[in-house]
Nucleic acid binder design. Structure first.
Length: 576
RNA sequence: CGGUGAGUAGCGCAGCCUGGUAGCGCACCUGCCUUGGGAGCAGGGGGUCGCUGGUUCGAUUCCAGUCUCACCGACCA
């Protein structure tokens, strides 16, 4: 490719509205341009990277036995009404009507469409297992699109759906996809973790997320430093502390704690450790149900765990009025003793072993000391509702400690069970001629997001440092001075050689000063740069600069093409 | 949706407080010069100052409304 005939509109200055580095660099490198909030043009260079990654995904999907197809992005409302998600999905589902007033939506995901196809076509257990995938444009009307391709409204996603005769067969399909995902992200040279995750609005029984580690990541994850346990913090189980009790229950006392509203204030004022206090929080569902959560004072609540335990659709901090009505006290002095209303009191498991604790007395400026469960208050259940912290013991092994990371979710695999097949009545006949419900799994990879995540993880002050498997070009040839006939001839020669060898090469033949070319080549992240200048040429040499390390090799004219070809092949072979 | 901030040339910004019809850097065009890390000189083109209304002789500037965008919170690949 001739740079002068290609289209790479780089920009020197960082656009002011780009916050994260991958967004800044993709704009500056001329890979993407914004058309509307969360909606982007993929410019030629960006598209090349995206296609590269798509093809890695395709290769691994095919290897894992998945079959490619393509579904429409416009979907009829009926299917969504049938699955029940027309009502449940909310405003993220972009809905519209056609000229006949029939309702449609832009597909945010394709469980309905694929399940509809399968229920029409699959009749027998002999036809399964099946796994269909597609690489397709999705639309989700995100409340707050941000970070460029990281969270767009329109985005390219690989989604796959598996269909099996029963749960254990479905587990096998799940495992195949899990392993394929591991290979995909390994091939791209990404530093990532597969973590246990909450299933969210997709539903189903269990799931793993694939998280590229990056400080700018929107998710927090933990992983054990000794065993393989890793989980999204939303899901991460807190360790069970052994019950510590000094046995003797002291006398319950109400003490004055003027203006002491936080655990830190109260603990300091009463001169007790924060871990001998109990924190009380009141939550409300969207339909107005209330629940009280008790945690050790220095612990944090995991709202998702509480929400899942309560089975609520939505969880909100209770309003001041709601709190006042059920406890009789404003926030700051809440506790489970002497409630005005009967509401569920959910205690974290750690609270079970605590004795003689400090907790709010449901009266302004008053706390209890020496409160004890059983004697002074009761709880409706002990449940893991706290957020794990770095340094917590691993819930799975004896010796490990949890480490905490930020991550970008680039892939997510779900065991769906029969959630969609049941709703859409996707059944088959088993060997006994009996009708059975199909078991499903679904598997997504954010294509653009992965490319963005790769940039997030591979860059320096000069720009992108693409891993070779997803680099838009493998190498570039830079002619230092295009007016120098000798330089141009040598550069062209190398360019043609490389093309002949099947190397993806960008020939920077622009009549620009060398500095401009070097800066652009660095910015767009080309892994190898061959520089042809008059100085080196006088000795029959050109130089090859490696973007990632900054190392410079001096090679003779005749060997450079083959050497570069070899370097690229070696790098790509490692990624297979 | 709530909170914060911003809309002035393709990009990054100044001007606005204290009204008088717009400027800087980069980019772009022409010419000269230059060619190993975003050079230099000279000339030039480009803006209904987000939109609507109000106040005023006069509004980019003051007022009101509105739209858009970005950032912080709950969702997600």
């Amino acid at each position: 490719m001739l740079y002068s005939r290609y289209f790479i509109p780089t920009i020197k200055e960082t656009p002011s509205d780009a916050e994260v580095i991958s967004h800044q660099l993709m704009l500056r490198a001329g890979m993407i341009r914004k058309l509307a909030s969360g909606i982007y043009n993929y410019l030629p260079l960006g598209l090349r990277s995206i296609r590269k990654f798509e093809n890695i995904v395709r290769e691994e999907m095919n290897k894992a036995g998945a079959i490619e197809m393509l579904m429409p992005s416009v979907q009829p409302a009926e299917l969504w009404q049938e699955s029940g998600r027309w009502a449940f999905y909310g405003k993220e589902l972009l809905r519209f009507k056609d000229r006949k007033d029939a309702e449609f939506c832009m597909g945010p995901t394709h469980e309905e469409v694929i399940t509809d196809m399968v229920r029409r076509e699959i009749k027998s257990y002999r036809q399964m297992p099946l796994n269909f995938y597609q690489v397709q444009t999705k639309f989700r009307d995100e409340i707050r699109p941000r970070f460029g391709l990281m969270r767009g409204r329109e985005f390219i996603m690989k989604d796959a759906y598996s269909f099996d005769v029963d749960s254990s067969a479905a587990d096998l399909s799940y495992e195949k996809m899990y392993n394929a995902y591991m290979r995909i992200f390994e091939r791209c040279g990404l530093n990532f973790r597969a973590v246990e995750a909450d299933t969210g609005s997709i539903g189903g029984s269990s799931s793993h997320e694939f998280m590229v580690l990056a400080d700018s990541g929107e998710d927090a994850i933990v992983s054990c430093d000794a065993c393989r346990y890793a989980a999204n913090i939303e899901k991460a189980e807190s360790p069970l502390y052994s019950v510590v009790s000094d046995g003797t229950a002291e006398v319950l006392q109400k003490v004055s704690t003027p203006e002491m509203k936080t655990i830190a204030d109260v603990a300091a004022f009463l001169n007790v450790a924060a871990d001998n206090t109990v924190k009380t929080l009141v939550y409300a569902s969207d339909s107005g149900e209330l629940a009280m959560a008790l945690l050790r004072g220095d612990h944090e609540l995991n709202e998702l765990k509480l929400k899942n335990y309560l089975g609520w659709d939505e969880i909100l901090m209770a309003s001041e009025e709601q709190i006042l009505a059920c406890t009789g006290s404003p926030v700051g002095f809440l506790g489970p003793i002497g409630l005005k209303q009967e509401i569920p009191v959910i205690a974290d498991r750690v609270v079970q072993g605590m004795t003689n604790v400090v907790m709010g007395a449901n009266e302004v400026d008053l706390h209890y000391i020496n409160a004890n469960r059983g004697r002074d208050f009761e709880v409706s259940g002990f449940v893991d509702i706290r957020t794990v912290e770095a340094g917590d013991a691993c819930p799975r092994c004896d010796s490990g400690k949890l480490e905490m990371w930020r991550g970008i979710e680039v892939g997510h695999v779900f065991k769906l069970g029969t959630k969609y097949s049941k709703a859409l009545n996707a059944t088959y006949l088993d060997a006994n001629g009996r009708e059975q419900i199909i078991f499903m799994g679904c598997y997504g990879i954010g294509i653009g997001r992965t490319v963005a995540a790769a940039i997030e993880q591979n860059h320096d002050e000069n720009g992108i440092i693409f891993p070779i498997p997803i680099a838009p070009f493998h190498c570039s040839v830079v002619a230092v001075n295009t007016k120098d006939a000798g330089v141009m001839a040598a550069a062209e020669e190398i360019y043609f050689c490389l093309e002949k060898l099947g190397v993806e090469v960008l020939f920077d033949d622009r009549d620009e000063r060398p500095g401009v070319k070097f800066k652009d080549n660095d910015l767009i992240g080309i892994p190898l740069r061959i520089v042809v200048g008059s100085k080196g040429l006088a000795e029959g040499k050109v130089e090859v600069k490696i973007r990632s390390t900054g190392d410079i090799l001096s090679l003779s004219l005749d060997e450079v093409a083959n050497t570069v070809k070899q370097m690229i092949d070696t790098a790509l072979a490692h990624a297979e």
